[in-house]
Amino acid sequence: MTRAFQVQVPCTSANIGPGFDVVGLSLSLYLTLNVRVDPSAAHKQPVLSYTGEGAADAPLNPFHNLITRVALYVLRVNEIKSFPAGVSIDVHNEIPFGRGLGSSGAAVIAGVLLGNELGELRISRDRLLDYALMIERHPDNVAAALIGGFVGSYLLELTGEAAATTQVPLSEVLPEYPENCNESWGYDPPAPPHGIGHYVEFGWAKEIKVIAIVPHFEVLTAEARRVLPDSYTKKDLVFNLQRLAVLTTSLARSPPDVNLIFQAMQDRVHQPYRKHLIPGLPRILASVTPASHPGLLGICLSGAGPTILALATDNLPQIADTICAEFAKEHIDS
């Protein structure tokens, strides 16, 4: 019997100032999969089509595409060795690649959800997060993409065999699948331990809106992590911990406290070390304030950047125009 379903995953912004690798926020740009399964169709392997952001570069081979490779991982862990026959997947992507809006995390979650639906596995949401964390080892983006809203997350300190499983190289979780990966291909990927990551959903005041300014250049996550120091001073760690504790509560309070939120979104763990990767970043963070732009609540780098995230209650177009103008001074379109 033919069946059809849709998978839709939001983009995300991680860190939100002091919450490096801890908090994530889902936003209203989406990765959408319209899926049709027709067992009577002639094709045995999934047929992919793409529109939107990155469509020209997206692999259409299901054994090279991240979304379908993740889906196959979920299926094979659950003893389903290959895709069902007659799968067609129309992908529409609104999330820019390499811009700090969780494009890879959205693809991983889309793959996990796709595998769950194709296999009719009925895996719980918490368990789906375990699957995602075997592939995307930082929980902030994938937790927000899966759960939605404003989410805090952490990885459990596992021991023994469970710890060893989470350290399996990604090449063994998502191997180089053969061009026609059927039931006769014998590799069984490692099943994720239970409870790799945990999360909590925070509140969000109805007055707070989000502005995302997306410059037209990419920052590789690996490079953005490479520039971070191996150790921090106690003073800088306490600075971030104090602000994160305040921020997660203050963003849920209505009406928002402008001064409280603006100060709580300051950071000393990642933004100062990434400023040379994003031209104009120090000037933007210093010059766009509640005093200069009434209605602004806070401003920060989104994820690894280069996207700039601003929280505001009013004057959103004026705030966005100012940030775009600052990028224009660096000859960067946004």
Rank of each mutant, 00 (worst) to 15 (best):
S49V: 07
G54H: 08
N61K: 02
P39R: 15
H64K: 12
V37L: 07
L29A: 13
S40T: 14
L25E: 13
Y30D: 03
G19I: 08
H64L: 11
F20L: 05
P59S: 01
R36T: 15
G52N: 09
P18E: 00
F20M: 05
A56S: 14
S26C: 09
G19A: 06
F63L: 06
F20P: 01
V47A: 10
L31R: 01
H43M: 05
S28E: 14
A42H: 09
F20W: 10
L33I: 11
N34H: 08
V23L: 14
A42K: 15
D21Q: 06
D38P: 01
A55R: 14
H64V: 03
P46D: 03
V47Q: 04
V35F: 06
L33H: 02
L25C: 14
L60Q: 01
V37H: 06
V47G: 01
P46R: 13
L60S: 05
R36K: 11
Y30A: 10
L31T: 04
D57I: 10
G52H: 08
Q45C: 00
L25M: 13
L60F: 07
D21N: 13
S49G: 00
N34T: 13
L27Q: 12
P39L: 12
P39G: 06
V47M: 14
L31E: 10
P62Y: 04
K44S: 12
N65A: 02
A55G: 12
F20H: 12
E53W: 02
K44L: 02
S28R: 15
F63C: 06
G24W: 02
S28Y: 10
T51Y: 02
E53I: 01
N34D: 13
S49R: 03
P18W: 05
P62I: 07
T32V: 15
R36D: 01
E53V: 11
H43E: 07
P62D: 07
L60K: 10
L48Q: 11
L27R: 13
P46E: 06
P18Q: 08
D21S: 13
D57Y: 09
A56W: 03
T32H: 04
A42S: 15
Q45A: 03
A58G: 07
V23H: 03
P62L: 01
